[in-house]
Each structure stands twice: as structure tokens, then as C-alpha cells.
Amino acid sequence: MLFNLQIKRYGDYGDREVPGGEMPGQTNNKSEWPLWEVFIRSKQGLDHKHAGSLHAADAEMAIENARDVYTRRMEGVSIWVVESKYIHASNPDEAESLFDPANDKVYRHPTFYDLPDAVKYM
């Protein structure tokens, strides 16, 4: 395909020459807004589920940011945010012993019980 037409080009190619501020030599993490964990209820009647995290100065801002970051396509009807530092988690290295008590209790499951086919609706 051959085109001999003049194409008008403009745009960001050298569009404006603005000095870009100073190179940030040192970082100061203390100025960083705290981290929040976001939980979203996708539909009335369902649990809130962890969606991700974000930074915000306070809870109100965290909810507003969560709306923009995690629910741009109607993914939620309700948002919970909690500052990440308040979350306590079990230690994955101790998972084996922590969950051990449930390990050998197959009789907690309905399939453990063999019943004659004659028994209906159970």
C-alpha cells in the first residue's frame, strides 16, 4: 500500500520543554502515607473479600481511593479498609502444627458415613 499524503503530526514529541524538577537524591519514607488493606463486598449477601492494598492519609481517603482503584467496574457494593499494621496473621512456618488438630478428623465430613441407598434426602 502506498500513500503519498502529507500526514499532520503533532503530539508529545518535544511538545513542551519543561524542566523536570530536581533529582530526588534522598528518599524520606517517613512521609509515606500508611498502607491500608481493602476488603470488598461484591454483592449484597456475600462476604467482604480481600481485594488488595493501597496508601492513604486516613480512612476516608482510603475508602475513596479503594473505590477508584478496586471498583471501577461495579465490583463492589461495600468497602472495608483497615490499616495494614493492625492485621495479625498466623505464621506460615507454623501452619502445619496450627492446623494439625483438624487433620485427622475425617468424621467431621458427611462422606465419612456409609449409608444404604434406601435412605433418601440425607
Partner: peptide, 16 residues
């Protein structure tokens, strides 16, 4: 062609 513009724009946004 645009390495400088891109970084400048990022720094400017951050600083401002």
C-alpha cells in the same frame, strides 16, 4: 526519542 520527556513529566508530577 522521549526518554527525557517521560522522566521529566514523572518527576514534575511527583514534585508538584
Amino acid at each position: 526519542p522521549c526518554n527525557k520527556q517521560r522522566l521529566d513529566a514523572r518527576r514534575k508530577a511527583w514534585d508538584e
